[in-house]
Write a protein that binds this DNA or RNA. Structure first.
Lengths: 252, 252
DNA sequence: CGGTTCCTTGACGCATATCAATCTGTGTGG
DNA sequence: CCACACAGATTGATATGCGTCAAGGAACCG
């Protein structure tokens, strides 16, 4: 289901103003991107990109969520990134000049803006503002993947779950002590490098034994407002509204 | 041990011509980079950057090798990247606009060219060629970290070792069936997300049980010219001189 | 030589994967 | 409205791979 992009540019810019990719671009420049793009409607489970494909588009999520993943010859897969509205993928891949090392699936139904690779690459070669946006996007993902690396190789399963929950909490509205998981538990489990069974057990332990949270389906409620503080590190600290309180264990 | 860079520009360019960072830069532009840089002589084990440091320089390896790593609060560490001559690090970090999430150590004695962060950032903002070099560098590292991620989370220990050996072999002279490990075994082990003990056991198994290689210190010899082919994937295939032979299991 | 560092080997315990069964919620059709 | 099917999630039992600890060997250097 693909159709010509006929988004209202002004409205698009307002809605996705914060997206790193679009930072400091003029209305005309954004318009140029949109004119050459198409919008795809995707259903949950649709695979948009297969590993080994030549990469033709940058994917920008208008609505819904995507998962990027890698799988080996035996079909086992790891989810590399879980992406929501306003994020994009295949950005780095476009600049690698080879086939995609990763696959992309829709984790939920939604709409994806497909910007042709050439439309992204060409302004990058001449427009220094856009090139610097791409650099920012790549640097950010590079940082993410470093975090994920030490998550998977250093931390114990429960710590990984705790860290993920903390980030999910901080990414949402921090006013109430409640948030919801934006992806299926099996998807999150694979992202965290563990099986769905272990993920389930860890959540249970954090409820029953550790008295940190209550879990009801995808809905998570903190038992104490600082339940997840123990999982915080210098990276997550920056976006926490409680970082100034004096019992924060990360105070300098 | 720090001294003003007084490298011969022409010689420098010739020697490090292949470095992605310098691609298509004019002699004047390279000269500008060098003029503002310093050369540090480092000993094995020296720590050049601490996690949490503000990043002041991009590090370009003139001689020797570096390791970038992350460690958690309990002091456990993972090696993120193992770097040799002509490679650079802190590149992505410079553009992340925050403290370094990683530390850097010298894995062997050598010389490092320290290019001030500002000297890198400033031309990036105006010089589109240089900006595109940075993009290429970042895209490359992003790809590397994806490979490392699925290595650590998908593959069994022995497969990781096999894959590492394969890449080490392909990176060298593929004419004879011999190569040597460029880093200490403990460093490689941590890079592969396992303990030195396990790494040692895997090497032994590949000698005794699997009859794939012989190991003598850091020197590795293949028992058959295709010993490591089983560890090959689409990524490594591209640099293999045997990829056209008809018994390659990765032929399309 | 003796001392250090790196690597190897063995024994043991634990955490996680695996397999299989059950449970829960949701949507469908009679 | 209930029965049924189905996917996702949970739980239990079992197996095993890896980390840990501790001791022994090998290479290197003063």
């Amino acid at each position: 289901m693909s159709q010509k992009s006929n988004l209202n540019v002004q409205q698009f810019i307002t809605e996705f103003h914060a997206a790193t990719l679009l930072h400091s671009l003029s209305v005309d420049e954004v318009n140029l991107l949109l004119e050459q793009s198409r919008i795809d409607t995707v259903d949950e489970g649709d695979q948009l990109v297969y590993a080994g494909d030549k990469v033709t588009h940058l994917l920008f999520i208008l609505e819904g969520s995507l998962v990027t993943f890698r799988c080996n010859t035996h079909g086992e897969e790891v989810n590399i990134r879980l992406l929501g509205k306003g994020q994009c993928c295949m950005d780095a891949v476009i600049f690698m000049g080879s086939e995609s090392p990763i696959g992309v699936k829709a984790a939920s139904a939604g709409q994806v803006l497909k910007i042709p690779a050439q439309t992204v690459k060409q302004p990058t070669e001449s427009n220094v503002v856009f090139a610097n946006n791409i650099i920012a996007v790549l640097a950010d993902f590079y940082k993410e993947s470093i975090l994920q690396l030490d998550n998977i190789s250093i931390k114990a399963s429960k710590e990984r779950v705790g860290y993920y929950l903390l980030r999910a909490f901080l990414a949402g509205n921090q006013d109430d002590d409640h948030f919801s998981l934006k992806f299926k538990k099996a998807v999150i489990a694979h992202y965290l490098g563990m099986t769905p069974e272990i993920f389930s057990r860890m959540l249970k332990e954090m409820q029953k034994k550790d008295q940190l949270i209550t879990v009801k389906g995808a809905e998570i409620t903190l038992m104490h407002s600082k339940s997840l503080c123990q999982f915080c590190d210098d990276t997550t600290k920056n976006v926490c509204t409680k970082k100034e309180e004096k019992d924060c264990h990360l105070l300098p």
